[in-house]
Design a protein around this nucleic acid. Structure first.
Length: 755
DNA sequence: GCGGAGACCCTTTTT
DNA sequence: GGGTCTCCGC
């Protein structure tokens, strides 16, 4: 076997990690230091050199994307299918465990997963049932509260209100929501983790089994783990109280944890991630070998030096200095825009130059703090005729029409699924009104049964108007018929049948607009997804049927439930595979883990970045700084920071201050493309009185334009020059367009044609 | 039951 | 400014 293939491509620090002796290892891996490579090579090392069976390895990530990438690279490196190995997200693995041990975990066999939207609706429903004022207890906040408690491993019975009326009601909602989930056989994302943890705690036999099996546990992005994830890992890795009674006599652990993370890239504290876990790790696992990967293979010297200097302003760090063998590269560019439009024009123009010089659009990323900022860039890019792709937003399985179809499928799989029942009982409309539903809900609550049973009972009792009873019965009968008629069909046929018979196709088909057509296409795409899924699923299970030692963990579930779980756990890509060469637009958060030759970080202003809601608290400010660090270290060659002096946000125009992060960057790595205030002088001083800029025909504006002159613009059409501001390339003109209204445009980018 | 008008909110997001 | 949600009128 060829060990050199595993070792040769590594630097000495990477090699130390990959070849580390048995024991616990913490790898502090800086941005661009080859973190995934180390994980993948470590796995290969364990299998090929240490002779560990792939069945004894568990690799955990946070996103499906990361898991998929790891799988791909393992297969590439080892030339073996990775299906025999457990590689997945925390949630995916928890789900797999719970499927295999649903009885031990106290879950019904056909339990289904609730996504955040479903959860939100369920929480709201509970709140309405007990008549909680939604203005005082916003359902989002209550939902957030519940998830935060679950992430801490806390059930309602562990919580005390301590006389706080506000808390008291939230705990009450939590309690009722939990009851609803139990009754309906539903499990939300946080619940997956919590249940998996409770499974370890309560079933020492199950835990012992997996401790025996998984002696090598690898974790990616360890800085993002929350309380429950780390607790779960600790138990599995043999650290905890349970094993004394079950597995081992002495303190000797046979499990090895290999965790990789970067405290400087911890940007998810606000959703419960605990950087502290990374600091705590060596204390929890004495004898941990801590290694640092500091050589960066991504960015130029200037970018790294600036990023290092920025992050040095944080106090709570484990400490790391990135360095590169590469050259300094260009300095970081800093652009002071007049406003957000100018900022967008500037960026678009830079990308145009980049492309003219032979670069590709997909190598350029526009990063921003909040999604609301994307619109201006989209406008500018459309205007410039430049294809782009925005990350984030609704994903395939989150679309309304898809969720409707899935809700029907969920009811086929499990009649007790109240969330699904609520969603489609009257979609498409079939005359089940609010009054009827209220009666059903009331019955369900009173008798503590699922809505489905309540509906049956209400129909039986005939306590409502005949029309209502008929409508309700129409629904339950429809589901029963759909189930009976499609039972035994393949998943693909079943999905197709459901989409048709449910009336969803007819319903959305009535909408002749573009929107309606897209919805039909999406429903069609859902059946395709089902077909594809069966294909992949079969491939996976065939390969997986190898010597699975335990016999318990091979998940043999019906394809429908498996498909539904897949839909919830992997909500799909945001946008279909637009393989065109596109400029990449995304938030700084979603840029983590990616790299681009050219990066623009925009809106680097106080209040926006750092966000005003994070600026006061030191801890949150440090997280913002880490976010900036993450953004900067995405850039390979060229990094530009931009801010606007005036920004229109939420319809208000605001004068801004450059972000404090800018002043934290050493000036020797920075080149200012335009100095703040160097061109845009206050109108009052440059031109006494506003009248001067809004009239006086015949005066010469920059670029040979005349006040009062008619001009044409590619996008805005024709208009009249009303005024101007500043001189030179960055001067702006005020044009009143016939159709588009009045606009301030930067002459250089506006490309106005005199008429 | 649907569509329009008005109120309301507004950081980041994966599972 | 804009997207979402609710309410009200047809």
């Amino acid at each position: 076997m060829d060990v050199s293939r595993l070792i040769d491509p590594l630097n000495s620090a990477q090699r130390a990690a990959v070849c580390a002796p048995a024991g616990d290892v913490l790898v502090l891996a800086g941005a661009g230091s080859g973190k995934t490579r180390v994980l993948v090579h470590r796995i290969a090392w364990l299998i090929q050199v240490e002779g560990i069976s792939p069945y004894g390895i568990l690799a955990v990530t946070f996103t499906n994307k990361a898991a998929g990438e790891m799988r791909g690279r393992i297969e590439q490196l080892l030339g073996i299918p990775s299906h025999s190995m457990w590689v997945g997200t925390f949630h995916g693995i928890a789900h797999r465990l719970l499927r295999a041990h649903c009885r031990e975990a106290g879950l019904p066999e056909g339990f289904q997963i609730l996504d955040s939207d479903d959860q939100y609706r369920a929480v709201r429903r509970v709140m309405r049932e007990i008549g909680l004022d939604e203005s005082q207890w916003p359902p989002r906040q209550v939902q957030w509260y519940i998830n935060a408690r679950k992430d801490e491993g806390l059930r309602p019975e562990h919580l005390e209100d301590k006389g706080d009326i506000h808390l008291k009601h939230m705990i009450e909602v939590y309690r009722r929501y939990d009851a609803l989930c139990r009754r309906s056989g539903l499990v939300d994302f946080a619940e997956l983790l919590l249940r998996a943890h409770e499974l370890w705690l309560q079933r020492s036999d199950v835990l012992a089994h997996y401790r025996q099996r998984f002696q090598h546990i690898l974790v990616d992005e360890f800085q993002d783990t929350n309380g429950i994830q780390y607790a779960w890992l600790r138990l599995l890795a043999g650290q905890g109280t349970v094993e004394k009674t079950t597995l081992e006599d002495g303190p000797a652990r046979r499990q090895h944890l290999f965790v990789v993370g970067d405290d400087d890239q911890s940007i998810y504290g606000w959703r419960g991630a605990r950087v502290e876990n990374i600091q705590q790790f060596p204390r929890d696992f004495p004898g941990t070998l801590t290694l640092r990967l500091e050589q960066n293979y991504r960015s130029t010297g200037n970018i790294l030096a600036a990023a290092n200097a920025l992050i040095a302003h944080n106090s709570e760090r484990l400490g790391k200095q990135l360095w590169t063998e590469g050259g300094d590269g260009e300095p970081i560019h800093l652009y002071a825009a007049f406003n957000e439009l100018d900022e967008a024009h500037f960026v678009t123009d830079q990308i145009r130059l980049w492309v003219e010089q032979g670069g590709q659009r997909r190598e350029c990323a526009i990063l921003y703090r909040s999604n609301a900022q994307s619109r201006v860039f989209e406008d500018a890019l459309i205007h410039a005729g430049m294809p782009y792709r925005v990350y984030g937003g609704l994903r395939f399985f989150e679309r309304a029409e898809i969720k409707d179809a899935l809700a029907y499928l969920r009811l086929l799989a499990n009649r007790h699924d109240d969330a699904a029942f609520e969603r489609v009982v009257n979609t498409p409309t079939r005359g089940v009104g609010e009054r009827t539903l209220a009666a059903v809900r009331e019955y369900a609550r009173h008798h503590d049964v699922a809505l489905w049973q309540a509906a049956d009972a209400v129909i039986e009792e005939k306590s409502l108007a005949a029309r209502a009873i008929n409508a309700l019965h129409g629904f339950t009968a429809l589901i029963e018929t759909m189930d009976a008629d499609s039972r035994g069909l393949t998943l693909f046929d079943r999905v197709e049948h459901t989409v048709q018979v449910s009336g969803l196709i007819a319903h959305f088909g009535k909408d002749r607009s573009e929107k309606g057509r897209t919805r039909l296409e999406n429903l069609e795409e859902l059946t395709n997804a089902a077909r594809q899924f069966v294909h992949d699923f079969e491939a996976a299970t065939t390969l997986d049927s190898g010597p699975d030692v335990d016999g318990t963990a091979s998940t043999s579930l019906d394809p429908l439930s498996e498909f539904l779980a897949h839909a919830a756990l992997e909500a799909g890509e945001t946008q279909g595979g637009a393989w065109e060469d596109c400029v990449q637009l995304m938030t700084l958060h979603s840029a983590k883990g990616l790299e681009f030759r050219q990066v623009f970080i925009c809106g680097v202003e106080e209040g926006l970045f750092p966000h005003r809601r994070s600026a006061e608290e030191p801890g949150r400010l440090e997280e913002e700084r880490r976010l900036c660090y993450v953004g900067m270290t995405r850039a390979m060659e060229k990094l530009t920071l931009a801010y606007a002096e005036v920004r229109r946000l939420h319809g208000e125009e605001n004068y801004t201050q450059p972000s404090r992060f800018i002043s934290e960057l050493p000036s020797e790595h920075i080149e200012e493309v335009r100095l703040r205030g160097s061109v845009a002088q206050p109108m009052s001083s440059a031109y006494p009185g506003r009248t001067r800029t809004t009239g006086a025909c015949g005066e010469t504006a920059p670029d040979g334009l005349q006040l009062g002159q008619r001009v044409a613009h590619e996008k805005f059409g024709e208009g009249v020059v009303l005024g101007y501001e500043g001189q030179g390339r960055h001067a702006r003109v005020h044009v009143n367009f016939e159709d588009a209204g009045s606009k301030w445009l930067v002459v250089e980018y506006a490309r106005l044609t005199p008429l």
